[in-house]
């Protein structure tokens, strides 16, 4: 009989730290291709001159960050680290410590901003951007996939959650998303990306909304019903007139991503996680 670890693949804590450090730096300096494409397309399609000019500046900033080797935005975020952990992976060392060591190293070596306070009310900066907000999902296989999402708080602060009634239905969900985007106005640095989580429980809805921001905005929901809802909501958001920077224009959002899960007969939780045009993510498989 094989021993208990013979099916397992070993991943060393040090390799996790090195990967996380690299991902923190890469995510902050280089936006994902889908976001860059969407920004350029938005600029070309923007009918309002002030808005077109703002989008032009933001597109130039993305290029300048590359040329100057600087973060695209000074809010280099709280490091949200999403882990898809194969159940046949054995981690040699302390996993959480390894991720935090990676964040510490990445934010130091990459000249990224340390934006985390140790306590929400006493507010002393930890000085190294730790701890990370770590989410682990156990999946089949022997691979470990890391995704680092540095989340800025200009947009995070504009996010909301509501426990709607089942009777509110799809119209209630749309209304809540639109109200949230309208109330956010110029604050989250539009054009924004809107992550929507529908269903589950109070906490799962928020988690779904955050996960929705991991999906490239040019990949619609695989369920056609929700793909259409994403499209409808994007069109309605871009009819609000807020525009880039809130100075007016068509391009208020670049994309709407919806994630769902089953929920209780009595409930309809909806969470809206707003992200700015600097929607960052970088992944690596170990």
């Amino acid at each position: 009989m094989p021993g208990p670890f013979e099916y397992m693949r070993t991943v060393k804590a040090e390799d996790i730290s090195a990967a996380v450090a690299e991902l923190c730096i890469r995510a902050n300096k280089q936006l994902p291709e889908d976001i860059v494409r969407a920004m350029n397309a938005a600029r070309e399609g923007e009918p309002w001159p002030v808005a077109e000019a703002s989008l032009g500046v933001l597109c130039r900033n993305i290029e300048a960050a590359g040329e100057m080797d600087l973060p695209v935005c000074q809010d280099t975020g709280m490091a949200c680290v999403f882990v898809r952990l194969g159940q046949d992976v054995h981690i040699e060392g302390d996993f959480n410590a390894a991720v935090n060591e990676g964040v510490r190293r990445g934010y130091q070596q990459g000249y990224l901003r340390k934006s985390v306070v140790a306590d929400p009310l006493r507010r002393v900066n930890t000085g190294d951007n730790t701890p990370a907000a770590i989410t682990v999902e156990l999946v089949p296989g022997d691979r470990l996939e890391l995704t680092v999402v540095p989340k800025g708080f200009g947009s995070e602060n504009m996010s909301r959650l509501a426990m709607l009634k089942p009777a509110d239905g799809v119209e209630g969900v749309k209304r809540f998303v639109l109200d949230t985007v309208r109330a956010a106005g110029s604050n989250p640095c539009p054009p924004i990306v809107v992550g929507v989580g529908i269903g589950g429980t109070f906490d799962k809805a928020a988690s779904l909304a955050k996960h929705a921001l991991l999906r490239p905005i040019d990949c619609p929901n695989q369920d056609e019903f929700y793909a259409r809802l994403e499209e409808d909501m994007l069109r309605e958001i871009n009819s609000l007139g807020i525009g880039p920077q809130g100075f007016g224009g068509r391009t208020t959002a670049l994309g709407v991503n919806i994630e769902t899960m089953p929920t209780h007969v009595a409930g309809l939780p909806v969470a809206v996680n707003i992200s700015c045009h600097v929607t960052r993510r970088a992944s690596m498989e170990l």
Binding site: Q74, R113, G154
Partner: peptide
């Protein structure tokens, strides 16, 4: 503004505005 730390050779790192509200 809360800028990112300045890399060697620069006066300041990234330095865009934060939410005034």
């Amino acid at each position: 503004v809360g800028p990112t730390p300045e890399p060697p050779g620069r006066a300041i790192g990234s330095a865009g505005p934060t939410t005034s509200g």
